[in-house]
Amino acid sequence: LRIGTLAPKNSLYHRQLMEVGEAWRNAQGDGAKYVIYPDGAQGGETDMARRMRIGQLQGALLSVVGLREIEPSIAALQNMPLLFRSWEEVDYVREKMRASMEKKFLDKGFVVLAWGDAGWVRFFSKEPALRPDDYKKMKFFAWAGESEQQEIMKSLGYTPVPLETSDILPSIQTGMINAVPATPYFALASQVYNTAPHMLDINWAPIVGALVVTEKSWDEMSPATQEALRSAGAKAGLQMRTKARQEVDEAVEAMKKRGLQVHKPNAEQRKEWNDLADKLYPRIRGKMVPADTFDEVFALLKAYRAGKR
């Protein structure tokens, strides 16, 4: 098995992939070859999706950016801002949707082995900002490939600057952009927080990922091997979820020590953000997220919140 990921070598994610490999090798027996390509050695997330399709890679640990190349409805878990208030809500919805989502991936020729996440997207900016309007005078980083998202931002009076991930750091340093939506882990690793030392402490959207393998390679395994791989994947997924959340908190602490200022919006500002999100949802539904999946997530969340109360 050949597995690609953007996660850095020796990171939590890389270590978990190695454990999955260990389990698979033991089940598969002698001569089983398992190679991980960390640090994006096989290209970006869309490249890895492509390399799986041509059969060069058999699996990859991808975030929604890469996963939506395979199955667009996965965007429901990552591309709906301020929808989820906590990891409990994310976990609940994901667990409820898991079976149908995994079925959709199987229809596209991929088997999902593990679900993980990588923290909340927050806003990092050069100037302090707390309210949605504060960001209207800023230029935002936007994924070059996601024109729908740019359309939505423009329609609400924001200024997206479509760039590639590799352009983020030089662009924020030169003032080409002044705000970057990113996870604390990314902000720390990419040094974005040095130039954009103000972080808005809201859970804008979770970064959700999954370890997938191609159906073709899956079908070539014995049922016993499949079973071993599945349980190893489940174990790794649990680790990736619990430990990643802890590492995100550590990343924020580490950046705080080096000058990051965390801004927590008050109740009134929070409401402004939620109003913004309410304006966003109808524009996302059917465009960035397929309408039926969108409705499903909303219904699940409503049920969860009702049950909790």
Binding site: R51, I54, G55, Q56, D167
Partner: peptide, 19 residues
């Protein structure tokens, strides 16, 4: 025994590289 399409994929990857 690896897929030959890997070569044009790399070609594509570099020619559409943002820089």
């Amino acid at each position: 025994g690896q897929p030959l399409a890997s070569v044009p994929l790399s070609h594509y990857q570099i020619t559409v590289n943002p820089s």
